[in-house]
Nucleic acid binder design. Structure first.
Ligand code: MN
Ligand code: MN
Ligand code: MN
Ligand code: MN
Lengths: 221, 221
DNA sequence: TGTAATTTTTAAGCGAACTTAAAAATTTTT
DNA sequence: AAAAATTTTTAAGTTCGCTTAAAAATTACA
């Protein structure tokens, strides 16, 4: 098995991530949007990935990962999240800057490097955004979280996970001083504009938009 | 200035390194050999780099770096050597494995990453092979060393620098337990096969080939 | 100095990864 | 169920970074 290009690896990674909500099947346009490429380019590449037995591609229907495609995708995710952890914990980058750098580092080819990095970091289970880091064998501990947009009123939650691919969103969280593991309680929901009122650690009270809430994932306590 | 591809960066890096002995001018075939590409490919790329004002290319004569080409080349060298230092010092890689991984890492684009890494490592002046690490401004401290192949008999030297691009050579140094800063004295040179006899730290005595000696750089003490 | 050997460039072409425009298939709306 | 809208594929073309083969320039040497 010859090594894949960075763009091929990205396709596999995004097919994994976009497929999580749609039982594995991903549409051409969704990939095109994510990759910022034309739909024609995506069709082109999907055929080539299918030739390499990394995906199952059915015309006009969609694409999903094969066993070997999944294995590679999970490995890229593992590398991405280990690198993010390194950048934040060791190099003291803020969490809004690490994603774009990890997008490059995740494509460095060296199994020994990944494992040494994992050990250097003390085998972390989650990255700085709360995303689970797959272990050496590809096992991921999937924590059961719910989007804050779907959470119930008056219940106590803790912030477990935030969407990491918008630096602007993460900077906003810095500004309102919302961090992982903070306690969150919804005290009111506004019908009119779908904003929600929350308290953080039973102290600060603030209003956040539906859009922000969708990118925050919480666990009940 | 749009960012360069990894292969363009490699061209600049190799033009810098190959040019060091020939007052900056590098021949097409030397690059072809180093890159393991055909001479035709090299001619092709040199024209494109010249269009971008990164090199001065004169047909049938050779190529050299412009001011901006040099700046980029030195930066790649800085990144390469910082990454090698990180891999050896922090991740405990042996010195024969770090070069190939750094060949990939040197192309990651992030100025903040380089500087944070530099700080994390304590602003090292030399990499694990004794190569000088250019500082943030591109300044390199050039230590005056001489190849052991050209060193004088009976004089005391210390090993300052070893050629890092052959893993086999570095493994050989591991085997004979020769390390940076070891004291070396030439006690005999054999005319017939050009091997030389040395003592290490005034204790171990051993015979090394001309080829090995050419890749060892020493400083007199 | 003329010829041979070597080096370098030019020419033509290829695969990967993109594009836009047009055609075809699918889905939605009426 | 037909028409309209949307999605996806196909077709044709581009750039980058490579190749081989042939031509041209340079260098070596008899
Ligand atoms: Mn990320
Ligand atoms: Mn993350
Ligand atoms: Mn190196
Ligand atoms: Mn080195």
């Amino acid at each position: 098995m010859t090594t894949l290009s960075a763009i091929e690896e990205n396709y596999l990674k995004y097919i994994l991530q976009l497929g999580e909500m749609q039982n594995g099947n991903v549409k051409t346009n969704d990939l095109a949007y994510k990759l910022e490429h034309s739909a024609a380019s995506v069709t082109d590449m999907l055929k080539r990935l299918a030739d390499k037995n990394l995906v199952v591609y059915k015309k006009y229907y969609g694409v999903s990962l094969t066993k070997s495609g999944l294995k590679i995708a999970v490995k890229i995710l593992r590398k991405h999240r280990l690198w993010e952890t390194f950048l934040a914990k060791k190099l003291k980058f803020t969490w809004d800057k690490i994603h774009v750098i990890a997008e490059q580092l995740e494509h460095v080819q060296s199994d020994e490097l990944i494992d040494k990095m994992d050990e250097f970091l003390g085998f972390p289970k989650f990255d700085p955004h709360g995303d689970p880091i797959p272990d050496k064998h590809g096992n991921i501990s999937l924590p059961n979280v719910v989007s804050l947009a779907d959470a119930k009123m008056k219940k106590q939650y803790t912030l477990q996970n935030v969407n990491d691919d918008s630096a602007a969103f993460l900077k906003y969280l810095n500004k309102i001083q919302l961090q992982l593991n903070d306690k969150i309680k919804i005290i009111d929901k506004e019908e009119f504009d779908e904003t929600i009122q929350i308290t953080i650690n039973d102290k600060k009270q603030l209003t956040i938009s539906k859009d922000a809430a969708k990118n925050l994932f919480v666990k009940s306590i």
